[in-house]
Amino acid sequence: MKNLTTSTEDLIFDRAKRGLPVTIITGFLGSGKTTLLNQIIKNTENVKVAVLVNEFGDINIDSQLLVSIDEDMIELSNGCICCTINDGLVDAVYRVLERQDRIDYLVIETTGVADPLPIIITFVATELRDLTNLDAVLTVVDVETFTPDSFDSEAAFRQIAYGDIILLNKTDLVSEEKVKELENYIETVKAGARILRSQYGQVPLPLILDVGLSQPDTYLTEGDRDSKHLVNDGFVSVSFRSDRPFAVKKFQVFLQEKMSADVFRAKGILWFKESPRRHIFQLSGKRYDLKDEEWEGKPSNQLIFIGRSLNALELNQQLNNCLTR
């Protein structure tokens, strides 16, 4: 990876010549995009990376789960930026480009229900084409849950079809045979893609950043395609907030017995009456994980559920029933 070894002067000259390098990270719900993003942030020692994070829903959870949130992080407004080519994305990129201090790399994380094409087109067929350089589209795949008909989702298929790099994540959870089956399938969807394996999003950065794998001309003929994947796939998000804590046992019963089977992904910050700690909650399919840490600020519950045809009123009532009186 050139950016990790060259001098500051070389970086400035290279950026002026090629434009700011851009990597788009995409992948279906729960594949591990934010985990990978954390790995990038933690391991780019001599490279200043700007990050654009987008949420599908009206509570910004991902930004709270990142390892570092400081002046180098720029958050977009809520909503799916990849549904249409809108001023929100372009303006955010200009905010990065106009910074006085040096920025060496731009990474964009899409939502799990995103068709990546509109974001790609933003960088190869607008005025940003002369200021940035689309380096690669990286698609993260959860090898445990992904199947060729993954959740009947057009977006999931297109995330692979447009990926220059396919990162098979969570390989420790499945057999070698399952991984090879997925690799063979991916070859039929995107021949020539760089297929990598990882656990917890850990991958050598020279394999994914500054790789020059994108071929912009191949996207230009598809720029007029109308992307309506959220409508076609039927995904919705339901958010929940509360300034009262959950009861642990009630919340556990909700997860195991009452939560709709149509929930594919959930994440959030949890506050339990029985614990003084802040709990990071991640759910993907039937598997969920809790990690605890110290609170930073006033305790509260903040959750997002993403799935198909969810009943928001019912879901919120179930969660309200988990609260302590």
Rank of each mutant, 00 (worst) to 15 (best):
Q215Y: 05
E222N: 12
L167C: 08
K249Q: 14
E177V: 11
M259P: 10
F246E: 00
S260K: 07
P216K: 07
M259C: 07
V253F: 11
S239T: 05
D243I: 08
K228E: 15
Y185I: 08
A266C: 06
A193Q: 02
P216T: 07
N184H: 12
D224N: 12
E176F: 10
D226T: 10
I186T: 15
Y185H: 13
L209Y: 10
L213S: 03
S198W: 01
P216D: 01
I165E: 04
I186A: 06
L167T: 03
T218P: 07
G192L: 06
V253W: 10
L167Q: 04
A193Y: 00
Y200R: 15
L205V: 12
A247K: 15
T188E: 00
N184S: 13
Y185A: 12
V253L: 15
V189M: 06
L270R: 03
F251P: 02
Q202V: 05
P206H: 14
V263S: 06
F246V: 04
P206W: 11
F254D: 01
V236K: 15
D172I: 05
L255V: 07
N184W: 11
G201D: 13
G223K: 14
R244F: 10
V253E: 08
K170C: 08
Q199H: 08
K178Y: 09
V248Q: 11
D217Y: 03
V211R: 12
L168F: 04
F235H: 05
S227D: 15
E176P: 02
F235W: 15
Y162C: 11
G234V: 06
L196G: 02
V203T: 00
V263F: 12
K180H: 14
D210T: 03
N184E: 12
S242F: 09
I269C: 07
Q215N: 11
L167A: 07
N232S: 10
L168P: 04
I165F: 05
L196M: 09
K228H: 14
L270F: 04
S214H: 10
L207I: 05
D210N: 12
I208E: 04
P245A: 00
Q215T: 01
L207W: 00
E181R: 14
T171A: 03
D210M: 08
L207S: 09
V211F: 10
K250M: 06
